[in-house]
Design a protein around this nucleic acid. Structure first.
Length: 556
DNA sequence: CACCTAGCAA
DNA sequence: CTTCATGCTAGGTG
């Protein structure tokens, strides 16, 4: 392409011109292997990382395809050194293999003798390897399968784990045939997972990850341990399994702070497993309580650090990670890759939208100019207080109200992070004649239920949500969300909040996602960081001035 | 035993 | 960069 949308630079960044006619085709082509780094209005920056290339490799893409995509969309000649580097990096995955040798048990096999010699010399693998069996094979201590993979990844030679899995204790599980079937992408996800035996499936919020889990369980038909972030999610799993599989009430156990049941299918919270007492973990027996044939990690992007240690010892069991966003803010993507497994399936949000399983959404960033007094105050305060000050600016209040008026026929959620601010918004909206209750952490379960029921029934049109909206999944769906403040730059929070409005509307209506930020402050920067993940999924933010919202006629 | 609350961890 | 929400545990009550 002589005038393509992509500029490929030798520092491994890719610049995508957003308004170019081929921009969206280009984004589709590079998404499987490149990570979006910055997404301002006109030029998006992607980066090629080893982990991104290895994930693509594990998902079946080869260097030739990656090189082809870069050449096809590049505006200028692509630096030769970069193409060589891409090919070499991708070729590093799988030069070492972990295999199960009938005579010697777990072994490390080098498809390249020099690589095997190189890593065997490393101090970091000391103690993990046993005898050299032949020039291409070294015995591995069975208990070090996970640790070795972590170390090899850090050395830049990620091993392909072909050592197989134990079957575990068989337990019949089948999908019920009662008038539903797996969607095509769910079926593909299960097939890709099955082929690898361990790894991560990435699907948007509301795309039915639980059913992917249920189908994987039916395939394996063995006792299963499901790990979840909170008890609400655990109950949701149980409800879904009862509805969609042949499993019955007494086959499914809950292992949480409240209950300690271990059944053929056990749903446990991460937190109960990672609680410590006197320096030990009193609930680790759950892992050995049964001969689990499958372990499901729900919301794998939130996996707490100690879980990686336990997972290192579970490498012989099939492992399925489920998530909407593989990105972690703590940089532990490498541990997910080594210990849960590579990404096996990834359906872009826009693809699922095109199939009609999630509603189309338009995202708008509304910039509010602070009054002079606030700008002066902002300039003077300590850096650590700047974000809160900018995010909770009073100038946002009329904009929130105008948005609620603009969508007078829709149900609106107002979502924020600071309780004081949310109460202030509640008072303001009350004064404007839009009574809007708040649901926050301190709201009792009974009261939450009452408000959510009223919202679902339509008798309540507007609702303010605190961070409860990031965690709990038993929340109402709306067509419009207004985000007023966030947890600094959390990308998963943004994705979670957008997910609140993506349930398909009966009449094919659009969903609207607004984020209100203070101009010329750190609020704008954090908003840009939060938007990165969704930009990667193809959601374009329109930036408008608050005055257009306040004065303009009803639009949208 | 069921239910509540405070304190803590990450 | 700091808040907020959560779940677990222990120690109370009726």
């Amino acid at each position: 392409m002589t005038n393509g949308p992509l500029i490929v630079q030798s520092d491994k960044t890719l610049l995508l011109e957003v308004d170019h006619p081929d921009a969206s085709a280009c984004r589709m082509a590079i998404a499987p292997f490149a990570e979006l780094e910055r997404s301002p209005e006109h030029m998006h920056t992607y980066r090629l990382t080893p982990l991104g290339l290895w994930n693509a490799r594990a998902a079946g893409h080869d260097a030739e395809g990656v090189v082809d995509a870069l050449l096809r969309f590049s505006r200028y000649p692509v630096p030769h050194s970069l193409l060589v580097d891409v090919a070499e990096t991708m070729d590093r995955y799988g030069r070492l293999q972990l295999l199960n040798d009938p005579a010697h048990g777990l072994v490390l096999r080098g498809l390249d003798r020099a690589v095997l010699v190189e890593v065997a010399k490393s101090k970091k693998v000391a103690g993990m390897l046993g005898a050299q069996l032949d020039p291409d094979t070294i015995a591995v201590h069975g208990s070090e399968r996970g640790h070795l993979k972590q170390v090899l990844l850090k050395l830049g030679w990620p091993a392909e784990d072909l050592a197989g899995y134990v079957d575990g204790e068989a337990h019949p599980i089948a999908l019920r045939q009662n008038g539903w079937q797996l969607r095509s992408y769910q079926r593909e996800a299960v097939e890709h997972f099955q082929a690898g035996g361990s790894g991560v499936v990435v699907l948007p919020c509301g795309a039915g990850k639980t059913l992917v889990g249920a189908a994987a369980m039916a395939d394996v038909s063995a006792t299963t341990l499901i790990l979840v972030t909170n008890t609400v999610a655990g109950r949701q799993w149980k409800r879904e399994l009862l509805a969609r599989t042949t499993l019955t009430e007494d086959e499914i156990g809950e292992y949480s702070g409240e209950r300690k049941e271990i059944r053929p299918v056990t749903i446990a919270t991460y937190q109960v497993l990672t609680t410590r007492r006197n320096g030990t973990f009193p609930h680790l027996n759950v892992f050995d309580a049964r001969d689990w044939g499958l372990i499901v990690y729900d919301e794998v992007h939130l996996l707490p650090a100690p879980m990686f240690r336990f997972t290192a010892d579970l490498q012989a069991r099939r492992r399925l990670g489920l998530t909407a966003t593989l990105v972690r803010e703590d940089g532990k993507e490498g541990d997910v890759f080594s210990l849960i497994g590579p990404k096996r399936y990834d359906a872009p949000w826009k693809d699922i939208e095109a199939q009609g399983w999630i509603a189309p959404a338009d995202c708008t960033e509304i910039r509010v100019t602070l009054p002079d007094a606030d700008r002066l105050a902002y300039a003077a305060i300590e850096p650590e207080e700047k974000y809160k000050f900018a995010a909770t600016a009073k100038a946002k209040l009329p904009v929130i109200e105008a948005l609620i008026q603009r969508h007078a026929d829709e149900q609106v959620l107002v979502i924020g992070a600071y309780l004081e601010q949310l109460h202030e918004i509640g008072r303001y909206l009350d004064e404007q004649g839009v009574p809007t209750p708040i649901v926050h952490g301190g709201t009792t379960n009974k009261e939450r239920e009452r408000l959510f029921d009223a919202f679902r029934a339509g008798s309540l049109r507007t609702l303010i949500l605190s961070k409860v909206g990031n965690f709990s999944i038993d929340l109402p769906e709306a067509a419009v969300a207004v985000q007023v403040s966030g947890t600094f730059g959390s990308r998963q929070e943004e994705a979670q909040r957008l997910g609140r409005v993506l349930r398909p509307k009966g009449d094919g209506r659009q969903a609207h996602f607004y984020t209100v930020v203070s101009r010329d402050t750190i609020d704008t920067e954090y908003a840009a960081h939060r938007q990165r993940f969704l930009a990667e999924q193809g959601y374009a933010y329109t930036i408008v001035d608050a005055d257009d919202v306040l004065s303009g006629p009803a639009g949208g």
